[in-house]
């Protein structure tokens, strides 16, 4: 949770420091697919931030949706709906600001409700999220752009599973650390 507060604090700090300079609001909403080792899933991305020259920085959220439900005891990393909350940084490569590179870093949180029973329960823990990608945008209106990007991301899904060990007849906690590397292809609109 501290990480999330730090991210928001960073966003507020950046906004206040840069306020006097030539800043413009930028908002990005995108839909896309996440290609993982085992499956392809849908995602939604929302970024709000500030543009300054060729730079853009903001706070983003990236939600990855399940298509199926798996038994949480077993493999694999992508069984839960997760949302990454991160700092988004972009640099527009060309003068026309059509092509850009981007780097994201933040925390990844399990957002779906996990099962709880009197002899077992799950505890969500924050993991990391980082990504880097390339993309372009094309004007489709006065301040509206079509955007497309390809991103390579590393996402960590962490949770603890407390259950009764029927051999020892004691409660034990198992900690899961699931790390997923994936390609995210997204498209949507940018508003500047």
């Amino acid at each position: 949770m501290k990480k999330i507060y730090c991210l928001f604090a960073y966003g507020i700090l950046f906004t206040s420091v840069s306020y006097s300079q030539k800043l413009r609001y930028g908002g990005i909403q995108q839909l896309g697919i996440v290609v993982t080792e085992h499956e392809t899933r849908t995602n939604f991305t929302l970024v709000n931030g500030l543009r300054f020259g060729r730079f853009f920085t903001g706070i983003g959220a990236h939600t990855q949706f399940n298509r199926r439900f798996y038994n949480a005891f077993y493999y694999c990393n992508s069984i839960f709906n997760t949302t990454a909350v991160y700092v988004d940084g972009r640099y527009y490569i060309d003068k026309k600001k059509n092509f850009f590179t981007k780097v994201n870093g933040g925390v990844n949180l399990i957002t779906q409700k996990l099962e709880t029973h009197y002899y077992y329960n799950f505890k969500k823990r924050p993991g990391y999220y980082c990504s880097a990608g390339l993309g372009f945008k094309a004007r489709i209106g006065k301040e509206i752009f079509y955007s497309f990007d390809i991103t390579y991301c590393l996402r960590q899904i962490k949770y603890a599973y407390k259950n009764m060990n029927y051999v020892t007849r004691q409660f034990e906690t198992e900690k899961f650390d699931l790390r997923q590397s994936a390609i995210i292809i997204t498209m949507g609109i940018e508003i500047f």
Partner: peptide, 24 residues
């Protein structure tokens, strides 16, 4: 460059899981 990086990274998509548990 974008297409090259996409193809390169497609070989790097991987799910890795680690479990910390108690051996009794």
């Amino acid at each position: 460059t974008t297409l090259f990086l996409a193809l390169l990274s497609s070989s790097c998509i991987k799910d890795k899981g680690y479990k910390t548990y108690t051996i009794s």
